[in-house]
Amino acid sequence: MLHRRLYQFFIVYGIGICSLFSIKYILNLSDYVIPSPIEVWLTAVDVFMRYSVNVLDTLSVAIIGHVLSIFMAIVVGIIARLTTGIGTLIKIAAFNIQAYPIVAVAPIIFILLGDGLASRLLIASMICYFPLLLSILGILTQPVSDIEHFFQMTGRMTWQLEVKIRIFENISKLIMVITGSATLAMVGTIVAEFIAANAGIGYTIRIALYQSDLAKILVALFIIGISTSIYLVCLEWMGHMLQKKWEG
């Protein structure tokens, strides 16, 4: 699973960077516009370790934000399915709020929470929370009549059981949604760092942009890609194990 993900990433990254170099030499562009392969290599040697630490910093915030958003989405999803009115309200709110570009909301968050961990965490959570919530709401509000009917008929149905049934029946979909939103969490954290934080790879990219140093950005993208791929593989593996254990 891991080697497949990494293999896919290397292909995409390789295509991207080879195309960039081809454009550079076809259009005879300077190293300022697109760095030379040697410059990218030397930059990688120079910053790889430092950037890796930064990416790990970002990844750890993204993971915490992701876990928080999963937890929040499940809690809100459970509340939303209790009554139709609240459920509809939450769905509408989720649709509306997710329509706001996070870059527009982020400055307000930074004003309120400062440029520390809390803001990065909140933005990372926000960016993956709403798509997660909509999917989880969809799962938790959709009855699985063939299983639930018996418990309803015999008066055994509890909200915990209902949630358990609906999650179990949609576990593959849920794992896919959670894995998909992991990328969003990573993107959210990088965006947050890019906009205002003082740590993480997004902040590092920001500085590289100020310095017009595309080589650094290419190295950063490479490490981000690998780290995100590994995180996705871990999530898929955990999902697979959970599913295997649960379904027997």
């Binding site: 292909i11 390789g14 295509i15 991207g16 080879c18 195309s19 081809s22 454009i23 076809i26 259009l27």
Partner: peptide, 13 residues
């Protein structure tokens, strides 16, 4: 892979 590269480059150029 070569197709993707060509498409990317044509768009970029």
């Amino acid at each position: 892979i070569p197709l993707a590269m060509v498409v990317f480059m044509v768009i970029a150029i």
